[in-house]
Every structure is written in C-alpha cells, then in structure tokens.
Design a protein around this nucleic acid. Structure first.
Length: 108
DNA sequence: GTTGTGACGGGTC
DNA sequence: CGACCCGCCACAA
C-alpha cells in the first residue's frame, strides 16, 4: 500500500457510515452528519469526506452545504466534477432551486 | 505540544 | 446578492 494512503479513523468511519444512510432523492448537510454521529462539526466532516476512500461506495454526492450549494466532489470545490455531482442529484430526482443550489426541502 | 489546513456554518457589511 | 471575518473540530507534519 502506498505511504500516501492511510487508514480511516473512527471519526471518519462514523461519517462514512452516516452518509450511507442517506436515501436516494434526498440530501444532507455536513452539519447534519456531525450532529447525527455526535462527533466534530461541519468542518471535520468536510475534511473527512474530502479524503473519502470509499467513493462511490459512500454517496458523498448526497452531502451538500447548509445553504444548498453542492460543496465539493472528489476533492474538487469547483470544476467538471462538481457539474457531474449536480447531474447525479438531478438524476436522483433531487429538487433544485437553481443551478448549483439544492432545495432545502430535500435535506434529510 | 504547536502550527497550518480544510468538500463548513453563521454572522456582519 | 456577494465579500469578508471568526469560530468550530479533526488531522498531518
């Protein structure tokens, strides 16, 4: 195994586990994940997902920011990956207020 | 133990 | 609306 890759910590495992519980057609926020696992905050959750070694096994694309913006995808805060993320959500019938913004009613 | 970084959140201007 | 600032927690060097 490469020295660059490391094993996920208990906190990160808890984050990935919580994200897996998010059903298709719904989204959740980084803060909600933090509250659900009762560990850390949106910051730490975002950092953990950024390293997400379980993608796409873990539907990290269903995790968005509290303001409805998509946040990031595959370590990219913007770019073609983000557009792909939005496409995936639309494909799962997730309601959008406008391009790049998810409807808060879809928050799980 | 200290410092810097990050896919955040809320508040202020 | 956007831009800016501060606080928050977890992690690596």
């Amino acid at each position: 195994m490469n020295a660059e890759s490391r094993q996920p910590t208990d906190f990160e495992m808890a984050v990935y586990d919580a994200v897996r519980l998010v059903p298709a057609g719904k989204v959740t926020t980084y803060g909600k994940i933090a509250e659900r696992i009762s560990r850390g905050t949106a910051r730490s959750v975002g950092t953990a997902l950024a390293k997400n070694p379980y993608a796409p096994e873990v539907p990290c694309h269903r995790v968005v920011r509290a303001d409805g913006s998509l946040g990031g995808f595959y370590g990219e805060t913007s770019g073609p990956e983000i557009e792909r993320k939005e496409k995936m959500l639309v494909r799962e019938q997730v309601p959008f207020i406008k391009q790049g913004k998810v409807d808060p009613v879809a928050f799980y």
